[in-house]
Nucleic acid binder design. Structure first.
Lengths: 239, 239
DNA sequence: GGTATTTTCGAGTCAAGCTCAATAAAGGAC
DNA sequence: GTCCTTTATTGAGCTTGACTCGAAAATACC
């Protein structure tokens, strides 16, 4: 098989356009019917090609789904980055709030795709969303968190991987709880408290202690230490 | 079809034994080959029955899988309760540590079953692990948490649902990270820090404020108290 | 022992993923 | 433009595996 570079431009473009049509049709059908419910014949019909043609682009139904999922995760990453870019507020916690809100909603709306991303690996050996795609997505959080540390809004000794696990893990779990306990209509109402509480947890646990009394360069800890030393001196004095 | 109560004891016992054999065989085959990879013929063979017989016990392959999953979650609940019962330490955080360790390991070892529990609902309409089974499992945590509040080890105003989401969600996410980034061999090594950090987070965020020895976490009230003690000492000295 | 009922069975049906030989389209040489 | 080579497309058919169903075996009841 010739590599892409060997094929003239027009041909290559045409092939990629067709591949895109297949991918679009596949995404629509997978979203509507799920993985098992989706028919290859339906995907072919919607892409205006023969059923056999799909198999000259993708080895199997599972690999086609994989391609759809990777496109999906790439889209999520771009959207998350867009959310970060469009957030007017500069502070860490405002941005975290925006990211949490976006992610929780995403998790609920796209629950089936997200589940499939992890379930596929099991069912079909060696077929799973690549680690890189997931890493790229969570990199949005990682960057935000590190920047928060640089700006002294977060503790320096905060552990990034734990914060990441808490953030994405808790929101995913909350999302599942929300969609399990209520119909698809009034989901939005319950998302607020979840996001607020998540931000509150981060502020309390990873945020810098912002005591209003810490005037100048003297911290409360230093004051406390000084007091203890003074107390010891007095103890010696009185004996 | 006659109900169970109408059938004489011997017959009922025999039928339930056969149903158990099917369930056992199904669990083995599902674990080995996954849902799609599992063949109904293989399950029938291992259960020493005809393939058609399965369908007089379970409507479909998906429903059989559902039965296996429910048995699986029931087992998890029992094990979690056993872990709580066998933990010698009475304190909340020691028990939480034990539960976190158990759950993280469970999530890693049974990742495929757990994923399938949520993925199945999507693929096959109306087929999913019942909310009750999941609720029963997380009830172990809920009970522990409430008891911690009763014993004044946890803040009274701590929000149970958030703690639950953080606990199970984060551990599940951490488990996925662990199994994605390393082979099946040395998983145990990486579980320690995850569990420790989870307990530390709970101690800091949900736990009652502790003694003033904690550096960097000194409240104004504590400083005030120290000052008052010092003042008393000075008073005695000057008399 | 005879009959009614229930349970078991596996060959057959059906549906869907996938293959492949035939066909069409495109590219290149002259 | 024509011939030939190479590549892309196609859908009828193959294969596989979940599921059905009529018949037979087992069981219950009298």
């Amino acid at each position: 098989m010739a590599t892409k570079a060997d094929i003239p431009e027009t041909q290559r473009v045409k092939l990629e356009r067709k591949e895109g049509a297949i991918l679009d049709a596949a995404r629509r059908v997978f979203i509507e019917h799920g993985f098992d419910g989706a028919r290859m014949s339906e995907i072919a019909r919607q892409a205006h090609i023969g059923e056999g043609t799909i198999y000259s682009y993708y080895e199997s139904k599972a690999e086609l789904m994989l391609a759809v999922l990777q496109q999906f995760w790439d889209g999520l990453t771009l959207e998350a980055e867009a959310v970060m870019a469009s957030t007017k507020a500069e502070g860490f916690f405002d941005r975290l709030h925006a990211l949490a809100q976006y992610h929780l909603n995403t998790v609920i709306v796209n629950a089936d795709f997200i589940n499939l991303s992890f379930a596929l690996r099991r069912n079909n050996s060696e077929v799973g969303v690549s680690r890189d795609h997931l890493r790229q997505y969570v990199a949005v959080f990682d960057q935000l968190f590190r920047r928060g540390q640089d700006r002294d809004e977060l503790k320096r000794d905060a552990i990034l991987w734990q914060a990441r696990d808490v953030f994405y893990g808790s929101l995913e779990y909350s999302g599942r709880s929300i969609e399990m306990t209520m119909g698809s209509d009034h989901r939005v109402r319950e998302q607020g408290p979840v996001v607020d509480q998540m931000v509150a947890l981060f502020r309390a646990h990873y945020g810098m202690d912002r005591e209003p009394t810490a005037v100048g360069d003297v911290s409360l800890a230093q004051l406390s230490s000084q007091l203890e030393q003074l107390s010891e001196k007095l103890d010696k004095l009185t004996k």
